[in-house]
């Protein structure tokens, strides 16, 4: 499949799956409306030009609906979306480039499993905020190290 049509295809597929999974539920009309809106927004974005990260973002409300079908299905769809996005952007060309996405998706899958067992957001949210802050601090440190330790005795 050409990289240019991969993300629009994944967007349509992801927008269609929640209404199919929610056929016998009261949320079906909402799922259809949200799915149609995502497809329309994706169509408008694709007409303006190739913009895969935006398509990836547009499809996220459908993923929220998909959670009510099955958290595992949501994780699976997000996995396909992430790999599709990275592939279409050319960020998934080598075998060594696969290690980090696989690790990331495994962590996300574990979080999804944990979250699916919880009835309320308070405890995971209170954990998420400090963990996110620490992660970004670590990334800033890594960025500084990369900048400062480039070859040629950079300052």
């Amino acid at each position: 499949m050409r990289t240019g049509v991969l993300m629009p295809f994944l967007l349509v597929a992801s927008a269609c799956i929640p209404p199919l999974g929610l056929l016998a539920t009261p949320t079906l009309p909402a799922a259809i409306i949200i799915g149609a809106a995502c497809i329309l927004a994706g169509y408008l974005v694709s007409r303006a030009g190739r913009n895969d990260p935006v398509l990836f973002l547009i499809v996220q409300p459908c993923m929220a609906l998909c959670w009510y079908v099955s958290p595992i299905l949501t994780v699976a769809l997000e996995t396909v979306l992430v790999l599709g996005l990275l592939y279409s952007l050319g960020l998934l060309s080598g075998g060594e480039n696969l290690a980090l996405p696989v690790l990331f998706l495994m962590v996300i899958a574990a979080i999804a499993v944990l979250l699916s067992t919880l009835p309320h957001v308070f405890v995971p949210l209170s954990l998420f905020i400090p963990v996110a802050a620490l992660t970004w601090l670590a990334i800033l440190g890594l960025a500084y190290r990369t900048t400062a330790h480039t070859r040629g005795d950079a300052p």
Binding site: A64, L65, N97, L100, I108, I111, L125, T135, W136, I139
Partner: peptide, 22 residues
């Protein structure tokens, strides 16, 4: 009090962190 919204927030934030490290 939406768990799916929290999952998506964690997923998108984690995606940015993963891309930054990569």
């Amino acid at each position: 009090d939406s768990i799916p919204a929290l999952f998506l927030s964690v997923f998108l934030g984690g995606f940015l962190a993963f891309r930054a490290i990569a």
